[in-house]
Design a binder for these strands. Sequence first.
DNA 1: AATCATTTGGCAATCGGTTGTCATTGACAG
DNA 2: CTGTCAATGACAACCGATTGCCAAATGATT
Lengths: 340, 340
Amino acid sequence: MAMQAAGTDRPATIHDIAAICGVAASTVSRALSTPDRVNIRTRARIEAAAAELNYTPNSQAKALSSGRTGAVGVLVPDITNPFYFDLIRGTQLQLKAAGYTQLLVDTEESDEVEASTMEQLRKSADGIIVAASRLSDEALLAAAARIPMVTINRDVAGVPAVVIDTPSATSQALDHLISLGHTRIAYMAGPLTSQSSTLRWTALAAAAEDRGVDVRRLGPFAPKTQSGAAAADAAVHSGVTACIAFNDLIAIGMLQRLRERGIRVPEDISVVGCDDIFGADFCNPPLTTMTSPIEQAGRVAVSMLLAQLNPLAGGGSRSRSLMPTHLTVRGSTGAAPAAL
Amino acid sequence: MAMQAAGTDRPATIHDIAAICGVAASTVSRALSTPDRVNIRTRARIEAAAAELNYTPNSQAKALSSGRTGAVGVLVPDITNPFYFDLIRGTQLQLKAAGYTQLLVDTEESDEVEASTMEQLRKSADGIIVAASRLSDEALLAAAARIPMVTINRDVAGVPAVVIDTPSATSQALDHLISLGHTRIAYMAGPLTSQSSTLRWTALAAAAEDRGVDVRRLGPFAPKTQSGAAAADAAVHSGVTACIAFNDLIAIGMLQRLRERGIRVPEDISVVGCDDIFGADFCNPPLTTMTSPIEQAGRVAVSMLLAQLNPLAGGGSRSRSLMPTHLTVRGSTGAAPAAL
DNA sequence: AATCATTTGGCAATCGGTTGTCATTGACAG
DNA sequence: CTGTCAATGACAACCGATTGCCAAATGATT
């Protein structure tokens, strides 16, 4: 009701409450954090005063004295990649639900920025979530020893991770293409530093060998729609009838380029993406892609991190979580063109 | 070179440096922040020790004692809306360049969440950037009195603002449609609480009156692709031959729905979006839309806020910045169908 | 009624810095 | 040789909480 303690405009402190109630500041602190350690009547008075003054604890001070900051850092390589939008949304939701603040940082695909950010965050965050880390295994492991960490799409022994199981979906995609009659297929690789890209290629190559079809690797290509042009040209030049792109951005870029060049999709060439990001369903043609539970992955990562921070809450914290993926067939894949 | 002070693993403090150099902690603080107040030789020793210990100041402690947090809050109504991706990217880049940290918060289109977040941020941020605020003018003004603020797409007297000039672009869009022969046009409105939507409608209605064409307002519709279905149906039912959507999300959703219903775009109906978000160029058909310099708006907002925080740097801080917009014509608009 | 166990709540140190105040130092001028 | 002044750096208070420790108060027990 009352806006503020009359006159003063600065936020109320624990001392203001203490003065009003005639108790020590420490008592107020206890009443607010460990209610059982304080007489129920004084507690009531304190709570009333706190409400009256519209008191909210100063998080800086809290962090300084308690060591806990109530913040979690979220590191993504490129904030403009729609893939991370969903991820960020997932972490944001789950963190907010748990009363944490999200510190979002774009590491600009740079291992240096990533490392220095981690060191920085060591003091200003209780833990960090690192998506698609560009760091070496050793560096990542070393960092994880210094601050609670959960990685996403980066599996290193000893570091809790959430892994979206796209590799296994690649064989599903491959079978889909084979069933449509394709036998010459390309994988449009992502950045060399991306473990996801490597794992997808490994899984795809293994599946291809198993099925006895020809799958070649092209690239690497940057995970942006602009790279799609180069990817499209490379695919066409290589003579394949279908390709599986590292992610939807590349795939969508390919779609645009192919259209410009008058190459029909899927009649002349089929394109499969990966992730099912915003836009995959309304591009032209709609993209067949491996749908990832991205937002959910973000939420799970937060849960794992919080479990690590507060070991009290029963549930034995799992150190690795594999998120299932499935193929979503849309319009960008079709029967292989008749052989010349 | 040396990893850490041998043995101790916790971050080095100003006191560690002081002990090594045999000076008081305050001297170290001064040497690091106001170098001229300290002997150049001791300063050198201190800097050497700091480097040796790999010292980085504790931001919490710094914030507590100095009152400045080095963080800026960025409030957006819906983090999943691609429009805000570009905005967030712009703020992130500019903040990082200035050495600030970005605190990203999704206010979930709720004025309550927005207000409480602001109160919260009052202590943990030096200033805030509020995009498309859902707050009343009074509430916004009151909040701005409590913490340095810059709004984006929300113009309230007394609060510095960055405004993307989409209203004036609406008349450009209208003229484009008129030149194609359209005379019955609909505006697919956004949320009632969105000032942008209101301003666009006002500008559009005025322009329509001026040109003597019929423009009716339909909606409101939530700014999501899913709302596009309802919007599309409403537009078709109203018998218009063209429509201007509040934003690209609605427009893209309409495109999808119209396609499902077998209504051709632009042959049967033309659609104009607003913002030119990710996806507007590759949807089907590519969307004619009002292109906004979104990322730039984010950067400008940060600059204005920082100018407000550090009045020292000459440039008289402008209190209002109007970002120009232009119409980008793509495939979703075409000649009006012949009258029945 | 005296003793002991248990609450209850205050004191003061602490977190890691910043900053006002002041004593010391040395240089220089008178 | 001494007085003035600027430069330097140490001391200590402070920012707003948390938390260990202890004394006082309460209540239960015998």
